[in-house]
Amino acid sequence: MTEMAIRVDGLTKYYGGAGGTKALEDVDLGIGDCEFVSIIGPSGCGKSTLLRILAGLHGHDSGTATLFGEAVTAPRDDVGVVFQTSNLLPWLTVTRNLTLALEIRHGKAAAAAADVAAMIELLNLKGFEDKFPHELSGGMKHRVAIGQALMQNPRVLLMDEPFGALDALTRDRLNIELLRLWQRDRKTVVLITHSISEAVLLSDRVLVLSERPGRLIADIRIDLPRPRDPSTTRDLPAFGDHVVELSRIMGVV
């Protein structure tokens, strides 16, 4: 058993304080170091709320949430968050956007010392170093957003439907990139998604949340061989089995 990166015990959260709408109910989960875990669930089930609690952006009403044994009370320097919107600053170039997180967390010197060229290479953004966000396609913006989070070299990467707003083709391409990046760095990743096939393709484990209030209703280990690739992995019988199993749990089938 690897060291636990994330532990959540009896986590309950109300919107608008106790007495308000219950968003999450008694959620227990553990995510190992270097594990890739997806959380899926119907819209409004509180999965984004759960991610924001782990990111230190939202508080909670009862239970505990810990990262590497410490209670989460504020955003941490060793956690990178990627949101559904790419959140690039329109007045900064790709390079400056890539180093923005470093700059804000650790100052200008850290940003200047960062190896942007390697990240540009990794993200296939060569030639776009000095472009501004409005000159990029949607998929490229999201690559920069992920790059910004990776530049901080976080121990944990929290991703809230990072490709949710993109078309299927772009989404597939970014999934390939994400797989490649993860297989290289092996960070702890928590991915919020509403796509079952995306969750199965990428994850070591898929956690399923119920309708609101969100409760953990399934914890499925995905034992597909790695390295994975969308074109071949999706043809494996086990891939289809997992998708069917998860669809059944979510009541889609």
Partner: peptide, 10 residues
Amino acid sequence: NLEEHFRALG
């Protein structure tokens, strides 16, 4: 969303 992003960056 940008303000939240900045908060997440501490």
